[in-house]
Design a protein around this nucleic acid. Structure first.
Lengths: 175, 175
DNA sequence: CCGGATTAGTTTAGGCTTCAAAGATTGGTC
DNA sequence: GACCAATCTTTGAAGCCTAAACTAATCCGG
């Protein structure tokens, strides 16, 4: 034995683990870890439910969501920027969805380099089902907050996002 | 030049794209997308800097961070729970870090199933360098918020996290 | 002591993701 | 028309990640 003679470290996540950290740690770090934990927790649950209920994945869902809002189609590059992922990533994702008959490629009129990606009829139906469930899940997971808290959180995250973008902007930047 | 003749659809991310969505979309969804964008943005920058400055990755860094706070070592299972990733994931991650001489395995006294994972001396030195830079990056990226905003955001994220955990708890749950 | 349930860790198959390099096309300049 | 730079996409190598199946060790009730 000799197991837990003193401490039982059931620290659940990295942010909680830092709670009793020695002083000197910046509170920015705690904020970041809490943000990360929060997102990871929700994202993991969404992924699990997408798999369980629709046998699909979050990246697939995200790609279809982007296309659903662009009935006329989007090029791979546009999708890649919207999803904030690499080009090559979208290539593979689109290939898999195409092989399942959920999206289709069309030649881009006037530019033979690019291709338009669009949902098929089946893809639209399928996404409608998934999307409705997804919206409910989000509402459920965030239901612990009252409307005022949600509004406040939304506002602060907007400020944070703007701050991050500003910190990332290549120095002298106006637009 | 013929650049922007009509619309320049520079919709930067999914959340922004939803800003002018038809009504009926729940505000929870917008909140979730903003949370996700915020995290993704920061995480992507951290990943890029870890690669650029230390030729390492976020998962490696996270594993080393967990070990750094447990000088006596952690089992693979403990690491896996702390990082909220699967067992098999930690197996591979630990193998890579071990092959680079940054972590080492020790037999767990009294339980031949388990192994203790610890930073090597080199791993500790390396992590100290990375950690210092990392803390600075976070402070830089979140510097756009003043202390009051950070505190408020921290509090609201705590509420959100608790709400998500509650929604995920297996029904009749007391502890 | 035996046998079943549990726990720790590994393995496998498949998908996601990035970076870097290469192929194809376009637009502008001379 | 010929080049050259920029843009769109694909490919390949490597790593990350999960679920599920598996092995090994421990625990525990009889």
């Amino acid at each position: 034995m000799t197991p837990p003679d003193d401490i039982v470290p059931i620290t659940v996540d990295a942010e909680t683990a830092l709670a009793h950290a020695p002083p000197g740690h910046k509170d920015e770090l705690r904020l970041w870890l809490r943000l990360l934990t929060c997102t990871t927790l929700m994202e993991g649950e969404i992924r699990a439910r997408l798999r369980r209920d629709f046998d699909t994945t979050l990246p697939r869902f995200d790609l279809m969501a982007a296309l659903d809002r662009a009935p006329q189609g989007m090029t791979l590059g546009e999708v890649s920027r919207r999803m904030m992922v690499s080009n090559g990533n979208v290539t593979g994702l689109a290939a898999r969805l195409e092989s399942e008959g959920l999206v289709e490629r069309r030649a881009m009129p006037g530019d033979r380099r690019a291709q338009l990606l669009r949902l098929t009829a089946r893809g639209r139906r399928e996404f409608a089902r998934q999307s409705a469930a997804h919206e409910g899940w989000i509402a459920e997971l965030l239901g612990g907050l009252d409307p005022a808290e949600r509004a406040q959180l939304f506002r602060l995250l907007g400020r944070a996002k703007a701050g991050v973008r500003a910190a990332l902007a290549p120095e002298g930047e106006t637009a």
